[in-house]
Amino acid sequence: MINITLKQNPEDYTIRHLVRKMTNTGDQQLSWNFHRASHFLVVTHPAKTPCDLEADILPWLAKNGEALLESGKKNADGILWNVIQERKFLAANNRFTIPRGSLTNGIPYRIQIFPCDIQEDQWDIYQVEEDANVAVIPVSILMEIQYKKPFLSKNQVCMFRAKFDVNRLEGVLRYKPSCSRCQFPVSVESMRAAREGWLYVWLPRGEDLTISVAPEYKDYYNIRIADD
């Protein structure tokens, strides 16, 4: 049984200049600077699933920490857990790689890195200020938009659909007609029920429609409009 202590020491135990990039092979490569740490705990979880240090991470570690330390990595309930020794991290030129196959496609991930001081059964985990230890792997949503202009009508029909697994888009998508001051959230239910996913919006001729991501998910999704 390990003993975990949550500590705050933003001066010594820090994560700085955290950068994520995708390699040519599709792996996710993370690099960061630090001042002191014997290990790093890296938690990679689906971005829309809350993963709080005190509420989620520490209880899981209390049960599985020993095994994690032994194996260095563990995948449980869609969350990827890694513990990296300082020595190995330095040897890799301050880089850590998450292989392509260990993450599910189409799901944005949030990666939290905590500097640790692990001495036998004693784990000191340090909190890092202002999300300097957080990186995100975003996902692009491909959208198709078409306009139909019925003959002699003042209006046009704007049709749009997501070329994406819509079941994963609960609360994510919204649109704004250029003639309106409102944002219109798009329900998953409507995207599922619509034939081939096409939704229909009636707009005055000359107006158009912009698709966007809800503010709370804007770091996790990008909108890409398909060419006609």
Binding site: V157, R181, C182, S190, W198, L199, Y200, V201, W202, L203
Partner: peptide
Amino acid sequence: FPSPQEVQYLAFLNEQEY
């Protein structure tokens, strides 16, 4: 609140429903 006109820009499931 939005003006009543805004409601007309709701996305419908298909043209027939509209």
